[in-house]
Amino acid sequence: MRPVRSLSAGSLVLSFLVAIPGTADAKGTESPVIIGLEENGVNVGSSKWIRDPQSGEFVPAPPNFVSDDPNQYKADLQCQVDQDSLAKKCLPGQLQCPPREAGGKPGTAVIWKVAPKSVSNPVWTDWTPNGSGPSCLYDEKPEDLLPKIAARIESDFRNLPIKPAELRAQPSPHTLKGAETNIFADAVEQQFDVTILGQRVHIVATPVEYTYAYGDGNSLGPTPFAGGPIPEEQWAKRRERAMCINRPVTFSCP
């Protein structure tokens, strides 16, 4: 067990208000209903499964598991009916993909398909993130493009003007010596539209974990919890239970 130390300015308590997914308000007939099968699976805190790389079997995911994209994607030619033939009737109405710059190569009209990675020989369905329908792909081998984009996306992402989380404290801007202080991160989802390898890519940046550095060499995290504001009448109360889940060495736990 690590020795409990205290900060020179007094003890601080972090608050971690864990949001409980709201069930539908029985009285509020106009409150939205989370109705989809997948949507409920994401929202209700049900079991999550991953493929165990060693055994190849599906096992429950560990508690702090951050999900990867569960899907695989491919681009089918817009008018393709099977591997070898095209639907001739479809061709006249096919999406036109002229070159994007003078002297450039024209694109190919494709329909993106999606299927879960976890299923062998899955059935593919149309991928419809924002509306649907065919799109133009400007690459000779469409199937090679997505991995290329995926490889580029992390480095390109680091150059995006992402607004960092802001640190909030209650009370603020000053706290009293010996008094409890609620510290939390204020981070928001941010969206960007960028062009990678000639393809327009929409990126949604979602904060998933937080690390708090206290300036005295101590830190907390990474933790999935940002914490959150609490009503003023509760400022003086310690929120020990939540805090001790993360066992920060700087703070005393009961």
Binding site: C97, G131, S135, L167, Q199, T211, A213, G215
Partner: peptide
């Protein structure tokens, strides 16, 4: 207090012209 890191999940949601 500074926030040390903000890890981020990426979601690739669209390609090309729709």
């Amino acid at each position: 207090f500074i926030i040390g890191s903000l890890a981020t999940a990426l979601t690739l949601t669209a390609c090309g012209n729709n």
